[in-house]
């Protein structure tokens, strides 16, 4: 109830600001919302959304299937883990978006450049969370299994992987939240590959502020939906953990 009031009040203030011209070039929020509703059935906008989302999904998938096994491999051997960690800690703060100009040289197709940059960006949180998760595994549980004669693969599969799973899930959630940022950033800079960013640039050069804001509303909605989806999936997949 209070939340609805808050949203309504916020929209009213925005509407008034637009109608009274308090902020130059700001269209009333009703116009933006009507445009946003129109975009939901606009074929060219939907194909742009598709281009962005498919790049995000492909990049995330590649990052998961490479970075998680890499993290498992690097994390299981303590000497390797301790040697690799400083290198990882050193490389991680490098802003991945500074690689956009390089990626645009390496991949002439901007869709590929987008995916490559998403893979690079997503790999860090996945790798680090997997390695930290492995370091956090209960040593007694591992020793118990070893004591019963289980081999290293069985220990990894039955103890290490399940207790690392929540860390990996956190890594995936962080990765998801950055995919959209990276995708839109590449689309803004590298034309030709379509996507929400390309749509924004186009609407900007046509001076259609309502379309830009409407597309931004959809970008926010997509971000919200992705976060909700992965939080729900995490809760479902790791139900056994919440139960204890």
């Amino acid at each position: 109830m209070i939340r609805t009031l808050g949203v309504l009040g916020f929209l009213l203030v925005l509407e008034a600001a637009g109608r009274l011209g308090l902020i130059e070039a700001l269209p009333p929020v009703s116009v933006v919302l009507v445009t946003a509703a129109g975009l939901a059935v606009d074929g060219s906008f939907l194909s742009d959304v598709g281009a962005t989302l498919s790049a995000c999904a492909a990049g995330l998938l590649i990052a998961v299937v490479t970075a998680v096994p890499a993290g498992l491999l690097l994390g299981t051997v303590p000497a390797v883990e301790r040697s690799v960690r400083p290198l990882v800690e050193f490389l991680r703060p490098i802003p991945s978006l500074s690689l956009i100009p390089l990626a645009m040289f390496l991949w002439t197709d901007s869709h590929d450049a987008k995916i490559a940059l998403i893979v690079y960006t997503c790999s860090w949180p996945l790798l680090i969370n997997t390695m930290y998760g492995l370091a956090d595994v209960d040593p007694i549980a591992k020793d118990t299994l070893r004591g019963f004669g289980f081999g290293p693969m069985a220990v990894l599969w039955r103890v290490s992987l399940p207790s690392t799973a929540p860390f990996i899930a956190t890594g995936v959630r962080i990765a998801v939240s950055v995919t959209l940022i990276v995708a839109v950033s590449v689309e803004l800079l590298a034309g030709g590959g379509g996507g929400i960013g390309a749509y924004l640039v186009q609407a900007g050069s046509a001076n259609r502020v309502d379309r830009m804001l409407a597309a931004t509303v959809w970008a926010g909605a997509l971000g919200l939906a992705a976060n909700a989806l992965f939080t729900a999936a995490e809760r479902r997949l790791l139900r056994w953990r919440w139960a204890t």
């Binding site: 940022i181 839109v184 803004l188 960013g197 830009m212 926010g220 909605a221």
Partner: peptide
């Protein structure tokens, strides 16, 4: 939830 990069053109 709005990717901040999307706001640059705005």
């Amino acid at each position: 939830s709005v990717p901040p990069a999307a706001l640059l053109p705005v």
